[in-house]
Amino acid sequence: MSATPGTLAGSRAPFAERLAAVRGSRRRVVDRVMRTVALAAALVCVLPLAAILLFVVIKGAAALNLDLLTKPPKALGTGGGALNAILGSLQMVAVAALVAVPVGILGGVYVSEFASRRSARAVRFAADVMVGVPSILIGIVAYTLLVVPFKQFNAAAGSVALALIMVPVIVRTTEEILRLVPHEIREAGLALGVPTWRVVLSVVLPAGRTGVLTGVMLAVARAAGETAPLLFTALGSRLVNVGQFGQPMDALPLFIYNGARQPIAALNDQAWGAALLLLLFVLGVNVAVRARSWGRRAG
């Protein structure tokens, strides 16, 4: 400060001189440097994604062949494929979705359409907290309730564990989407004398169907990639299991986990192949679903 404030106009140094005096060259350097650092940080965030994709694609593609898709692992030694895991993932995720989608959507409908402010907040809160519960603990719960009583690891317990992970995700997305559906639509339906349940099912839900579908697909993608809840429930199996939900069943994440732990290169390679399949599905769903909503936001 070349002068205390309150200097009269006449006694200030000329503008050009003052402009030179306040020149903050050090601040300008700090600004330049830190903005570059922030850009670098953003690139660092993208780096792992790129590195993971790169290795999964390279190593996975090398391991990808018809056997991987069409054969179960050999009973002894190495070789064979991941058919047991592919079919297992499809079945367990499908059954989990069969349970979780209606529960989740109707739960979301409850929060947005029927719940009092307090119960809405309670359900929303519980769903948020459930999303944060470590999935390995969901595995323990499913084990305790559905494996211990039957003295048998089984795929049904795995499906239930996956469903428990999907429900809160679907509840939250459904509820958030339905809240965006204009109120007039509901009133119009009710004014025609249509019963509430029909208004919700045939007017409100269809109005939000893309958003609800987005939530469902993201939940499915998440469940398909979960390993921890299956460790103590579906357990994994080298056999192809179709429809035997009382028996152990393999899944792609379990197949990857078990393949990665063995000191045998051929099994490691198969794990990379399975990882590529899993990643294609999970990222495919995510890109398809998110790209649309992002496109809308950007446009």
Binding site: A42, C45, V46, P48, L49, A51, I52, F55, V56, A221, R222, A224, G225, E226, T227, A228, P253, I256, Y257, A260, A271, W272, A275, L278, L279, V282, L283, N286, V287, R290
Partner: peptide, 15 residues
């Protein structure tokens, strides 16, 4: 960056 969150834990572990 949000896509990174979608990669299954087991795949990240493998890598």
């Amino acid at each position: 960056i949000e896509l990174l969150a979608a990669i299954p834990s087991v795949v990240i572990g493998l890598w």
